[in-house]
Amino acid sequence: MRITDLTVVDIGLFDFDADVTLYCFVLNADEQVYLRYGGRDDTSPDAYLNEKSLHAALEKGLDLHGKWKAGELKLPARPAAKKPADYPSVKSEVIDRKQCVHCHHTGSGKTKLAASKGTLDKLKDLWVYPDAANLGLELDADTGITVAKVKGVAKEAGFKAKDEIVKVTGNAVYTWGDLQQRLHEVPHDATSLKFTVRRKGAETELEVTLPEWWRATRIERRSFVHAAEPFPEFWGRELTEDERRKYGVKPGEFGAEVTKFWVKTNAQSAGVQVGDIIYEVDGTRSAPYTGHPALWVRLNRKTGDTIKVKVLRGDKNLEFSFKLRAKAW
C-alpha cells in the first residue's frame, strides 16, 4: 500500500518524521501499528534503509501479526485523530489549491500553527526525531537496533557492543524507526532514559543520563525550520572541517559561507556579499546545538530585531548591521 498524498490521512495515527523521503508502517486491518520502518539521521536519507533491515522489519511484522491473531499481543490505544487540514497553512496553501499534501507540509504546518498561537518554543519544539548517536550509540544499519559501537553516556550506562535494544521506557522497539520514534517521544524535561537490551539471550535494563543537547541534530535541513521566523536575511552553507582550518574558524564555532541571495535582502543591502564567511552574530560565536549562524539567528532572534554580524572577506574582517524581516518573500 503506497500513499503519496497525505490529504485524507490520519496523521495522528501515522505520525512520523516529516522530513524523510520514505516512511513505512506494518499494521493490521484494525489499524493497529506493529512497527515502523524508515527515518533518517543527519548523515544520509537512507543510512538505515537497506535490503537486510527491510527484510528484518517485514519478518518481524509477520511474527507480530501472528501473535496478534493468536491474542498474544497487546497494542497501544489508537492516538487521537488528526488531519493535515487541521493545520491552517496546509489547508490554505495546499489543500484548497487542490495540491497533494506532502510529508514536509505537515511539519511546516505544525510549526506555523504553533508560531501563530505564540506557543512555539524554538529552542525546544524544533528539535525532533533525535539520533541515538548523540547518546553514544552507533547502531548496525542492517538491524537498526543492534549496538555496533558504544561511547559517551551510553557507555557510562553500561551499554556494550552487540546489545540489542528491545524497549525504550518499557515500549517495544523492533526497528531503527521505532527507536527514533521512542526517542522523539521522550518528554523534554526528562533527565534520563531507560533502555531494555537483550544481551546473550537475557534482558538487561540500562539507564542513560541525557546530556542537555542530546536532541540536537542538523535541523537546518528541515523544511519546518524554514517556516520559523525570522528570516536571517542571508543564505549560507556551513563550512567543512577543511574550510574551518583554512579560515581559522575553530571546531564548534560559527562558520558559514554566504552562498546566494535569491532575492534582495537586508543583509545584502547592508553590504554582505556572496562568499563572505559569517563567524559571529551579536557577539556570539558558538552554540551547543549548531555551527550555523543562520540557524542561530532563526532560533534566537525575532522579526524586527537588528543584528550585527562579523564576516571574513579575503583577509579583511568586516561588520554589518541589518534588520530581520519575518520572511524573505
Binding site: 500500500m1 503506497r2 500513499i3 503519496t4 497525505l6 490521512v9 501515522f14 512520523f16 523521503t21 520514505l22 516512511y23 513505512c24 508502517f25 506494518v26 499494521l27 493490521n28 486491518a29 506493529y34 524508515g38 517485514l58 511484522g61 509477520l62 507480530l64 501479526h65 491473531k69 510529508c103
Partner: peptide, 10 residues
C-alpha cells in the same frame, strides 16, 4: 485475507 498491511509513505 487476514494479512497485515505494509504501508509506505513516499
Amino acid at each position: 485475507e487476514g494479512k497485515p498491511i505494509f504501508l509506505e509513505f513516499r
